[in-house]
Amino acid sequence: MRSLLILIDGLGDDPISVWQGQTPYEHAKHPAMDALIQNGTLGYLSICENDIIPESCSCILRLLGVDKKDIPHNRAYLELLANNRDVSEYEMVLRCNLAAIDESGRLAAFNGQGLTAQQMREAARLCDGVMKDIEFIHLSEYRNLLVLNKEAAVLECAVKPPHESVGENAGELLRELRQQSLAINYFLQETAKRLQPLAHDGLHYELYPWGPSARQGLPSFTELHGLKGGAVCKAEIVRGIAKALKMDVLTPPAATGDVDTDVRAKAEGALTLLEKNDFVIAHFNGSDEAAHRYDYQAKADFISRIDEQFVQTIAAQYKEPLRVVICGDHVTSSVTGKHSDGCTPVIAGYLNTSGQHIELTSYRDILNFLMKESD
């Protein structure tokens, strides 16, 4: 029997007062998920369990069976792999957001808020080629990477994630990083000048480097579980994880990392991968992005659409027995816009067959259920 993990990023949430305390998951319409619960179970678990930080890289790797000691401290290297680029042992890579700064110098938004997708592409063009010693790589929308020579002080620098820092002084947030690296400091000065034409309505835009990482290997999915694995995804971190684990990766052309992704195409992609893999993960990032924007309605609507266009499609078209888990990786609060290590809904059940009672007391139970050898 094959297995499917439907990972709805940031599925856990806080109660929403205007919905009488319902969370976006509870408010959403999900008859296909409810049907799966009837042939399985629903639980609420913390994937983080207070020993890893509540962010996608560490939580997804845990759900894929990677031991805590092998989980990278930061995820930039994996996002680089997602774009078919690697670094040598003498280089490092940092994540780099296009951030909106208000007139008082505070971080107003971590995601290029106020700019169109075309303007964010223009911002990336303006920042490219500023320095020969720093390679600027545009990923998508506000997401970028920086590649430069390894500096131990930078790798040890704890820059606060921008999505956890909205409202704080941007200069103070990056002070230590700029002091540790003259190259990064100069790069940020020059790119800030180039981005000045995009300023409007009391906001201007600057780059926010963070999450430095170096090259790091991971065991393959087959080495971990003795199974073949595949992933249908768009988000750079998930594609990078899948490539690092040597899994098959499928990205539908109309897939995005937000709520406008082609959900039905991801279902078709998952069906294709299930033909030749024992295990498939399908990742949806839009729920996390909506919560970061405090848009609980968009998050609930996206969960409903995943149920209708993905879960129902799989249930209708996949005819063999299948183990299915639907869960989040961490909590993303639509109230605060931040991640936390609280509990996320976890649905585990069977399609086209019945099975033994499914125990859900920790993330290990998810692994035990999904990673059984193919029947």
Rank of each mutant, 00 (worst) to 15 (best):
Gly257Gln: 10
Phe302Glu: 05
Leu207Trp: 08
Leu98Cys: 11
Glu141Ile: 12
Gln317Phe: 10
Asp14Lys: 05
Thr41His: 12
Gly129Ala: 07
Gly269Ile: 00
His283Phe: 02
Asp375Gly: 14
Phe279Gly: 01
Gln309Met: 12
Gly12Arg: 05
Ser354Lys: 11
Asn74Gln: 11
Asp260Ala: 14
His163Cys: 00
Ser213Gly: 14
Glu55Trp: 15
Ser362Trp: 07
Ile303Phe: 08
Ser304Asn: 00
Arg75Phe: 00
Pro252Phe: 11
His330Thr: 05
Cys57Asp: 14
Ile6Trp: 10
Ala82Ile: 08
Ala100Ile: 01
Glu176Gly: 06
Ile358Met: 04
Gly337Ala: 00
Glu275Ile: 02
Leu42Thr: 13
Trp19Asp: 02
Asp295Cys: 00
Leu64Ile: 00
Gly286Ser: 04
Gly342Thr: 07
Val335Ser: 11
His330Ser: 02
Leu245Arg: 07
Leu146Phe: 07
Pro212Lys: 08
Arg121Tyr: 09
Ala282Thr: 13
Pro162Val: 06
Asp34Pro: 10
Pro209Thr: 10
Glu373Tyr: 08
Phe369Ser: 01
Pro345Asp: 03
Val249Leu: 12
Arg194Pro: 06
Gly217Pro: 11
Thr191Lys: 03
Thr336Arg: 00
Asn97Glu: 08
Leu173Met: 07
Pro161Ala: 06
Ala244His: 02
Cys343Met: 13
Ile137Trp: 06
Val232Leu: 01
Ser220Val: 09
Gln180Ile: 15
Lys243Ser: 04
Ala76Tyr: 02
Leu322Lys: 03
Asp295Lys: 02
Arg106Asn: 15
Val263Glu: 09
Asp258Gly: 00
Thr222Glu: 07
Ala153Asn: 14
Gly202Gln: 02
Val87Trp: 02
Asp128Gly: 08
Pro72Phe: 09
Ala315Asn: 14
Asp128Phe: 13
Tyr318Trp: 15
Ala99Phe: 04
Thr191Cys: 01
Ala99Cys: 11
Leu195Pro: 08
Ser374Trp: 11
Ser340Asp: 05
